[in-house]
Simulated scan of single mutants.
Amino acid sequence: MPATDRPYLVFSDVDETLITVKSMFDFLHYQLVRRHGTAGEEKYERIMAVTRRKAADGVPREDINRFYYSHYTDESVKTISDLADDWFAERSVSTRGFYIESTRRALAGHRAAGAGLVLVSGSFPPVLEPLAREVGADAILCTRPVIAEGRYTGEVETPVIGEGKRAAVEGFLASRPDVDPQDCYAYGDHLSDLPMLHLVGHPVVVGDDAELRARLAQHAKSVRT
């Protein structure tokens, strides 16, 4: 933890940084199978096949994010929220290794030191809110599906991925002029987290992504020179 009395913030990616699963897709599988059984499993596999094909074809992650949320068109916000609460209750208790413990301990240490904790994710509020309560996060910066009359439209506001993460974190930092970004921390595991990691004085790579580590080191060197 930093040896400073100045206020600071900690920004943390979620999937494969704080938890071991990809929350969007794990929840999609959970709710489809719970509601529709075998038909839900088959629908999930069809969605994932298209998702994998898009990724292999180099479709931007932001567009894949939009594709994911199109599958919630006309879904009740309350129904999805209730299912997400059940998903989190089951997964966080019954799934061995649900949390990446090193990150969870680090975030708890920052909280104990008085830092504000902000989760930053391409996932969406129903999935992230129970997690935020569990780890004591003060805010969530995430992709927000458009809602009309209590139902999802299938569209989203700006996906909080890559440059979307940068913009979201920059906006949050702008709302806290008492905080110096150089005192802040950010945790991420993927190259798409790099724009967020570049904004703080203490970026932390979770996992063994060699390219992410190399790119971050290169950026730090260019800043110093």
Rank of each mutant, 00 (worst) to 15 (best):
E163D: 07
V146S: 08
T103F: 12
P177N: 08
A137F: 01
D82K: 12
E163P: 00
R91K: 12
V127M: 14
A148V: 15
V93Y: 05
P125L: 11
G162E: 04
R176Y: 12
I140N: 05
K165F: 09
E170K: 05
A132D: 06
S123K: 02
V156R: 01
V160M: 03
E155K: 00
L107T: 06
T153I: 09
I140Y: 06
D82I: 06
G97T: 14
Y152G: 03
E149F: 05
G171F: 02
L83F: 06
V135L: 13
S94K: 09
R151I: 01
I140H: 06
L117R: 08
A89S: 14
V156N: 00
V179A: 04
S123E: 02
S94E: 12
R104M: 11
V146R: 15
C142I: 13
V146P: 10
T153G: 09
R166V: 04
A115P: 03
E129Q: 15
D138G: 13
A168W: 01
V169L: 07
A112T: 14
L119M: 07
T143D: 10
A112L: 15
E155V: 00
V179G: 03
T103S: 14
F88E: 00
L141E: 07
L117S: 07
Y99V: 09
G171P: 01
E149H: 12
A113E: 08
G122L: 04
S175W: 00
T103K: 10
G150I: 11
T143F: 05
W87H: 15
A167N: 03
D138C: 10
P126L: 10
R105E: 15
R144Q: 14
R91C: 10
V146F: 04
P125N: 11
V120P: 03
H110D: 12
A137Q: 02
F98N: 10
E129V: 12
V169M: 07
T103C: 15
V179M: 06
L141Y: 07
P177Y: 13
E101G: 09
A108H: 11
D82M: 11
G162R: 01
V156I: 13
D82P: 01
V135A: 10
T153P: 14
L117N: 08
I80A: 08
G164V: 08
D178L: 09
